[in-house]
Write a protein that binds this DNA or RNA. Sequence first.
DNA 1: TTGAAAGCGCTACCAC
DNA 2: GTGGTAGCGCTTTCAA
Lengths: 355, 355
Amino acid sequence: MSDRSRPTLATVAARAAVAPSTASLVFAGSDRVAPATRDRVLAAAADLGYAGPDPVARSLRSRRSGVVGAVIGDRLAHAFSDPVSVQLLDGVTEVLSPLGVGLLLLPGDADRHGPTLAQLAHVPLDAVVYATCGLEDDPALVHLQRRGVPVVAVDGPCVDDVVFVGIPDRRGTAELAGHLADLGHRRVAVVTLPLRLDGTRGLVGAARRAGTHHRTVRERTLGVEDTFGPVPAWETAANAVEEGERAGRQLLDVPAGGRPTAVVAQSDVLAAGVLRAADSLGLRVPEDVSVAGFDGAELPWLPPVRLTTVVQPTTEKGRVVGRAVTDLVAGRRPDDVVLDVHLSVGTTTGPPPPS
Amino acid sequence: MSDRSRPTLATVAARAAVAPSTASLVFAGSDRVAPATRDRVLAAAADLGYAGPDPVARSLRSRRSGVVGAVIGDRLAHAFSDPVSVQLLDGVTEVLSPLGVGLLLLPGDADRHGPTLAQLAHVPLDAVVYATCGLEDDPALVHLQRRGVPVVAVDGPCVDDVVFVGIPDRRGTAELAGHLADLGHRRVAVVTLPLRLDGTRGLVGAARRAGTHHRTVRERTLGVEDTFGPVPAWETAANAVEEGERAGRQLLDVPAGGRPTAVVAQSDVLAAGVLRAADSLGLRVPEDVSVAGFDGAELPWLPPVRLTTVVQPTTEKGRVVGRAVTDLVAGRRPDDVVLDVHLSVGTTTGPPPPS
DNA sequence: TTGAAAGCGCTACCAC
DNA sequence: GTGGTAGCGCTTTCAA
């Protein structure tokens, strides 16, 4: 196969006997080109096997690369075991793909949570979405702002010049807490998402709590405390079923007198783990203990149980993010958006056991 | 904030009183620059808030964008509900991220399976990975080859000038079939992955079978038939738990005499669905029916059951793909790779029930 | 409706 | 070690 250098717009233009600028108009889909000329150019392109203008060269002029970064604060295998992250990105791509804009994954790794500068610096980016894990002191964020790359943050971090898209975490959790209180619960425990990404697990003390990196965790804890006052919070090292199970076992494997009558997990995935823990300890849900989650994730392997949870419109959130990105790239500055949530009562919460 | 146009290399060079080429060397990390000069340039950059060379401009010269596309033959929410896809990409990013190369998601949508040309044409790509769903007649593939973008295909499609990374699907399944035969099974049914992405479900007839798009499905079916001869195959519309459950119910909800004594699902996710179906029909596994899968996916919600399955090194496969991409981008042409698989006997297979 | 020319910001090459 | 210079392939005025 002859590996001659690929044809360029200039080659095509020459062959069609038009100026490069005219050929450019043809590929831009301009309607101010005579149909005959257009066909001639297209024919020349076909002859030469020209696949259209080089995206890189085009980007250099147009100042737009068609690439939007998605910061994933962990290894993919971790982050995407959470259906919520996936649904979010699904919503984002649903909006951006038809516009010819692609999502570039910027995962962290086991140690560094968030992309390294090496990952960011060499890649063309029209905008960046902090999809999970918005840290408020991320060095990558500084780099992006300096480069003038607009940023959308999902559920945080809340920083100047970053568009925020989120939900009323606190109000949602408060609603859930109210439901539990109405049922008669008084002894409630919380299983939290990671307060910061350092692999810590266990009961959250005041010092640890003060160092909470994630807005989401903070708000979802406060929502419970708005009703119940200070409650024990057990931190997990990751948003994963195993972690929830581990936490659940710690909280539930105690004599009935000291055991919480309800466990509020800060995600459905964690709640699924707590359900497993209850099961393995021989505790019935909700007769012996109530369990609730957050997200309204579709976990196809969870039925026949229906988890009581706070439903957030995750895919729609992704679409909103997609639209915000579109605006940003077009030079508009979109408003922050706070979407709504609602309580969904399932089969995993009920009155506390008689004491 | 003064929104003056951002500084360029030229600006920085001027301020440091060096030539642009010298400044360029500094940012390239060259060691043939006098330390003093280097510091001067860096200082100038810091003063001006220069975030480093523009990736797009750099790409135009270096003919490298740092972006590798990942073709996902479905919506993200679908494709990534399969942990195998995620693990694969995880392996890919593990290799590429440290090199400053990012993965760009190129999902399809409900109708079009695979990215549209609009998605491909505007985005800079150093290479593309067909991560799932390699169709052999994909128009996008033609576009890429014309553009000179090298392609790596995972488990297919097998096409000229495309590097193939896969596993011995047929041999792996044959080994599994052998295990079942040894246990005494004679009546076996297969639950297949989609033969093509058109939403079809049900028993696979000869015509349908002839139109199989996916190498994987073909091979994994043949592997079973190598031992058992023609067996009933039930096609699912997607690789999802619900689909497996649906298929399982169809195959198992018959009188014991006509019921298969073993069901081989072509993925662990499907097998999990079959297990659910058996459970809901009151069938014990493996006493009443044996169930096996494929992949060796870690499904954290599956225990305490351990699925009998064919384990493939998914993350390693991703790493191999990452290395192949690295080679390709560097102008080398890597060899095709076929990784190994092995049978893992769990608790879901046993002797058939006495007839 | 088409063409000419000027860069986008950078790096590769060659000279010093 | 450093500087000059010529493009990478395209789009975008502006003029014809």
